[in-house]
């Protein structure tokens, strides 16, 4: 025990300046008008885990950050245009479009992204924006569900997200959602794969540090969907989760699986208080 304790102290002292990268102090204002809360006090349910929650935007290089500050420079906004067309297009056996039930996205979708994933009483399950879109398609439009990793569904989520930009994330974790939330929390702290790494190992214990060339953020999803320059495409939160789980040399979960829905609810709730930012730009 003596040796163990002693060497641990040596290791601490020998460590390079911890949080060398850290989060920067820039301010995020979109189109010169929408002011974003990108750092704020953590919600009470994060007691002992995090004091402050920080948007992933702060961990990116300046040139990537700037792309998110103007809708003309944000490639994710092209997907929003694309989804606006889809919104107005009738599909399926009922011959209905999203607009037939919901009017304009501005009228009906403002505030929606801020509270999702959300418990659906009728269905008796937690729904993400993605599974809700597919429920509308199959149950109301008589259309095929979209693939959860498709560009179409990410684009529709971006259109819905844009209506809430600047509003604080406020995902409910109590009541009927509590059980799913607990499950998501357990997954967040489970050390998966041959590398035995949990979400928390990287995004709670090590945010601000570089892991090779990657500057670790808190892994927040307030800014999703995100346009990834590396993939030249828009990705959803669960898409990102899948990549992170794969990188631990683990068997991943499927998009839309009960595990990833629970994890999405839990991770979204870790961002309560941050502004909805999607679609964001990431490298």
């Amino acid at each position: 025990m003596k040796l163990k304790a002693l060497t641990a102290i040596v290791a601490l002292m020998a460590a390079p300046a911890v949080m060398a990268g850290g989060a920067d102090d820039d301010t995020l204002v979109i189109n010169g008008e929408i002011e974003m809360v990108t750092k704020t006090a953590a919600a009470p349910h994060l007691d002992g885990a995090l004091d402050e929650v920080i948007s992933g935007w702060h961990f990116r290089e300046d040139d990537t950050q700037v792309m998110q500050m103007d809708d003309f420079d944000n490639p994710g906004m092209i997907a929003v245009d694309f989804a606006t067309d889809a919104w107005n297009t009738a599909e399926g056996t009922e011959g209905k479009s999203c607009a037939d039930c919901h009017g304009t996205p501005e009228d009906s979708m403002t505030g929606v992204k801020a509270v999702y994933p959300k418990w659906n009483d009728e269905a008796g399950e937690v729904r993400t924006i993605g599974t809700q879109i597919n429920a509308c398609r199959t149950e109301r439009m008589g259309a095929e569900p979209l693939k959860l990793n498709s560009g179409e569904i990410a684009a529709m989520e971006a259109l819905i997200s844009v209506q809430s930009r600047g509003m604080p994330v406020n995902v409910a974790i109590d009541g009927p959602a509590a059980e799913t939330w607990e499950k998501g929390k357990e997954i967040y702290y489970t050390r998966f794969g041959q590398l035995e790494l949990s979400c928390a190992n990287c995004h709670e214990q090590n945010y601000g540090n570089y892991i090779r060339a990657d500057h670790l953020s808190q892994g927040q999803i307030n800014a999703f969907p995100a346009y990834r320059l590396k993939d030249a495409g828009l990705v959803t939160a669960q898409n990102r989760f899948r990549g992170c789980v794969r990188d631990t040399r683990a068997e991943t979960f499927d998009l839309g699986s009960p595990e990833f829905i629970a994890l999405e609810l839990y991770v979204a709730s870790r961002g309560n208080g941050l502004s909805v930012e999607g679609p964001s730009v990431r490298n």
């Binding site: 590398l195 035995e196 790494l197 214990q205 040399r249 068997e251």
Partner: peptide, 20 residues
């Protein structure tokens, strides 16, 4: 957080390298 480099079992959802 440092991975175990000479270990073969006892993992949760072990994957085939980085294939997922």
């Amino acid at each position: 957080v440092m991975p175990s480099f000479y270990k073969t079992s006892g993992y949760i959802r072990p994957g085939n390298a980085y294939t997922g």
